[in-house]
Structure formats: C-alpha cells, structure tokens
Design a protein around this nucleic acid. Structure first.
Lengths: 106, 106
DNA sequence: TAATCATATCGTTTATTTACGATAAACAAA
DNA sequence: TTTGTTTATCGTAAATAAACGATATGATTA
C-alpha cells in the first residue's frame, strides 16, 4: 500500500504574458557561464564559438549547449561564416528583455 | 589544442563577483511564480504568505518554498506578525539587483 | 573524392528544481 | 492546558539542467 501517492498537476499554470517572458529571459541569464558569454558579446559585439571555448574552462559541447539556450531564449543569433559561426546579440529581443527588467524593477 | 581533454571539474568555476551576483538574482527570477510573488509585493508593498496561497493555484508548501528561495536570494524579507509572517521587498538588495541588471543591459 | 576544421547533437550521468502531502513548530486565544 | 491558525520543513517523485566524451554535420580545401 502506497501512502504517499503524489498528485501533480501536469498542465502548467498560465501566468500573464509579461510574467512568462520575464521569467524566460531570467532563466536564460540564470547561469554565470551564460552571463559571461553575453558580456563577451556585448564587449566585442560578436564572436565565434571557438573564441569562447578558448576563454572558458568548459568542454566545447557544454559551451555549445549554453549557446543553444541563449539562442532559444532569443538573446543571441548565429550567422554562418563557414566553417565558423559568428554569434551576436539579437538586438530586438535584447531590448525587449531590457525593457521587461527595467519595467519590473520600476 | 583546446581544453576538451577536461574531466568534469567538481569544484565550480570562479567568475567575477558581478557575474555571479547577477546570475544568482536571475535565478531567483527564473520562475513565473516567483515573478508573480514579487509583483504582488511591489503592488501592495507587503503581504502575508496566506494572501499568496489564496491567489496562486499552488500548494501552501510550494509557495513557502518559493518564498524561501526569494529570501535566500535576498530579494525579500519576512517580519513576524504572529501568527502570520509579513513579507516585504528587501529594498537594499532589490536596488542592487536593479543596478546589476541595468548595468548589464547597459 | 577525401581530409580537415568548426560546431552541433547524441547519449549518459549527476545535481538541482519543482511540486505535493504530511507533519512540525510557533504563537494566540479559549 | 488544549485548540486553532499560520507557516515552515520533511520526505519523496518527477522533471529539468549541467556537464562530459563521442560522434555527426556542413562547408572548404587538397
């Protein structure tokens, strides 16, 4: 007999759009490696994956994974410069994030 | 040769203080429920745990857990008003967070 | 065509997060 | 003292995140 059977609402709660967006951006920023990557991109506007691999003490695959998350959040975008990929801030979404945080902290 | 011979470092990487702080604050904001809680606190300056339990479709223990994370991040503080607890924004750390985000988005 | 380079993706392991119900703790009032 | 109220904490399950090495992909050059 299992006493501690857990119910759990699989459908997730709906929050206002702004709340969801802000949380999503915050989640993208919620790891120091990703902050470091974004700071790098802010400084030199763009850079290649390899530049980051040289600078950060993490496996190439790990960095690629962080880049993917930043891309999924819309904060960066990649441009093909074969055989490399040049990553830049996505200025439009960057500004959206900026405004959401600004407005949140009022 | 790149550093991809690296074994998983159990000791975690040291980033600059600002990077760590920003990531920590972002992590606290990285869930819509916590954003919702903070918005509530911003609106009415303070509120009791019970008020949040009435408003949010989550178990009391879950909300208490989210409050704990916000408290650990320093964004809120609790004041004993027996048998209730009144939560408020921690203005000092709130401003620190605000400044870090502002500066980050430059 | 084959080899090379830069990067992404796969598969896996471990750690962390999110959620719940149950229970404990702290205090006020009866 | 006992009861009720409010909130935190415990124990656990499930989901997600973070890290790695290995491998695949896509473009360029030999």
């Amino acid at each position: 007999m299992r006493l501690n059977v857990m119910k759990r609402s699989l459908e997730h709660i709906e929050y206002p759009q702004d709340t969801e967006s802000l949380a999503k951006f915050a989640k993208a920023l919620a790891h120091p490696t990703r902050i470091a990557i974004l700071k790098q991109l802010e400084n030199q506007s763009c850079c290649f994956t390899g530049d980051l691999v040289d600078v950060l003490p993490l496996a190439q695959s790990t960095i690629s994974q962080h880049l993917k998350e930043l891309k999924n959040a819309g904060l960066i975008q990649g441009e093909l410069k074969p055989p490399k990929i040049k990553y830049c801030i996505n200025q439009e979404n960057w500004n959206r994030a900026k405004n959401l945080f600004q407005q949140f902290f009022e």
